[in-house]
Design a binder for these strands. Structure first.
Length: 493
RNA sequence: GGCCCGUUGGAGAAGUGGCUUAACUCACCAGCCUUUCACGCUGGCAUUCAGGGGUUCGAAUCCCCUACGGGUCACCA
């Protein structure tokens, strides 16, 4: 009606663990939608399941989102006038609406025990029916209630689902989806512990917080009719809905938290040395597609381009290879300093370099990391890639052994060793000269010359620039390794 | 099982009745570049849109059925 209604969207995680990539994507869509439309992005914590709540999980979720580059307008740490932003701090707020529903007969006490309900469901299943609450406590009178209470039973409160009604979800992504109320049993809105269930809490929260668009995962689509009933019973206007399809693993299954085939938590990616802008860029492409042919976007561009119309209905499969490619793309574009800072802790934790680096050592490490910046997919890879610079004893792989068994090895290596010893100073330029001199004297050139040297110095048939590598290794180490390679030659011969 | 959603190449996808002999990106393959590797560059990779019926002069695009995949049916969110 009022086309000028303020856009307010929310990401509403339950604080049960780390920020999951699925959650991060939901948050991202909310975030982009809010920014695009000059709206507000709210983070609300749905912590009504006390058993599953994890200490500090809410803070970790927020930290994850912040790291990814999503700033929020309102949350537990930033009041926007619609707080509190934690369900458990909103219990009083829910209370009055529960009372209202109770008074109007739209909700009722249910004294069934969990065992009874389970047995009932079991029976229904046996008869081939779908398990659903039968509504047997719908018509309890005061005496019956009292009798149950005398038995020590604590009731739940159920919502009375209207008979024979259709509930229509107008979804921005999925279009019109219709649900029949007869397929839905009276559901619990207040648990035995007196705390509202998710379905009730979200509805009240979304209304009170004036949420204009509910953007969330598809798993909530079939919850929506229940929420619609609550909106209706309370006489509230409903928000717009947008249900984003699921992210599937490579077996095309919903990613479960236990799934080990994919790294699932934002924090883990951060720890491996992924860049937040790469993850954001990758995540947005899971279910959303831009209009043109470009796929690399900054946050600002995404805000500019994002639209709900281009969000896909079908599920997206998470492809770790593409993420790596994208992260590599951002690493290549990043400043060397940034990548060095990202890599240093990994080298330190692997015990390859000292905890505190002096000026000179830091410069050396920076130069080393720069050698690999082009090919790094994530920072943690640096320890493997650069391992050869730290090893005392080199082991040769099959290919390398093959090279070291070639006939001209002694000539090339001995000549080079001699030329190297004469290097003063020892730097990439003089090394280059030494190589040239070796070529002249030994008569070998090209691959015949460089490969033996490379293998002797690094143990591998491939790697970064040779002159630079030899320099980084240091004269001493290279000489030692030439020695060892010659021995290897002798032993094979 | 009921209800709901989906199905374009190995993956993300564009495509909303003729411009499609189906963009683009990742992966893969080939070639170039490089003393090696990586990066980069060039080219190749769906005669076909899950299958079958229809509607139409014309369908990946509309309708129906089937198959497959998924979600949900909790005092979890």
């Amino acid at each position: 009606m009022s086309g000028h209604k303020e856009i307010r969207v929310r990401y509403a995680p339950s604080p049960t663990g780390h920020l999951h990539i699925g959650g991060a994507r939901s948050a991202l869509f909310n975030y982009l939608f809010a920014r695009k439309n000059q709206g507000k992005f709210i983070i609300r914590i749905e912590d009504t399941d006390q058993k599953r709540n994890v200490e500090q999980a809410a803070e970790k979720q927020l930290a994850g989102l912040k790291w990814l580059g999503m700033e929020w307008d309102e949350s537990i740490d930033k009041d926007g006038g619609y707080g509190p932003y934690r369900s458990m701090d909103r219990l009083d707020l829910y209370r009055q609406y529960i009372d209202q529903l109770l008074e109007e007969g739209k909700a009722y006490y249910c004294y069934c025990t969990e065992e009874e309900l389970e047995a009932e469901r079991e029976e229904q299943r046996k008869r081939g029916e779908m398990p659903r609450y039968t509504g047997k406590c719908r018509t309890l009178d005061d005496e019956e209630k009292k009798a149950f209470e005398l038995q020590g039973r604590t009731p739940t409160i159920r919502f009375r689902v209207p008979d024979n009604r259709q509930y229509v979800v107008r979804d921005l992504i999925r279009g019109t989806v219709t649900f029949d109320s007869d397929g839905i049993g009276d559901f619990v809105i207040v648990k035995k512990d007196g705390i509202p269930t998710y379905n009730f809490a979200v509805t009240v929260d979304d209304h009170l917080m004036k949420i204009s668009h509910v953007i969330r995962g598809e798993e909530h689509l079939s919850n929506t009719p229940r929420q619609l009933m609550i909106y209706e019973a309370l006489g509230w206007e409903t928000p717009e809905f947008a249900h984003v399809s699921l992210i599937l693993n490579q077996d095309r299954q919903k990613m479960s938290k236990r799934d080990e085939s994919i790294i699932q938590f934002v924090e883990q990616y951060r720890d491996l040395g992924y860049l937040p802008e790469a993850i954001m860029n990758f995540l947005v492409l899971l279910g959303w597609s831009p209009e043109g042919e470009e796929e690399i976007f900054s946050k600002e561009e995404l805000i500019q381009l994002f639209s709900m119309e281009r969000v896909s209905k079908s599920p997206a499969v998470f492809d770790p290879d593409k993420l790596k490619w994208m992260n590599n793309h951002y690493i290549k574009k990043a400043s060397p300093e940034r990548i060095v800072d990202l890599c240093i802790p990994h080298l330190q934790n692997a015990g390859l370099i000292e905890q505190d680096l002096d000026e000179q050592r830091k410069a050396w490490v920076s130069r080393l990391v720069s050698l690999y910046q082009e090919q790094l997919e994530y920072a943690a890879q640096i320890t493997e890639l650069a391992a050869l610079f730290f090893k005392e004893e080199l082991d040769y792989d099959e290919e390398a052994k093959g090279v070291l068994a070639e006939e001209h090895i002694p000539v090339v290596l001995n000549t080079f060793r001699q030329k190297l010893e004469e290097c003063d100073p020892y730097d990439p330029e003089t090394i280059k000269q030494a190589l040239k001199a070796t070529q002249k004297e030994s008569g070998y050139k090209g691959k015949q010359l460089f490969m033996p040297v490379r293998v002797a110095a690094t143990g591998q048939t491939h790697g970064p620039d040779l002159n630079e590598s030899l320099f980084m290794l240091g004269k001493e180490k290279v000489l030692q390794r030439l020695e060892k390679a010659l021995k290897e030659y002798d032993s094979v011969r």
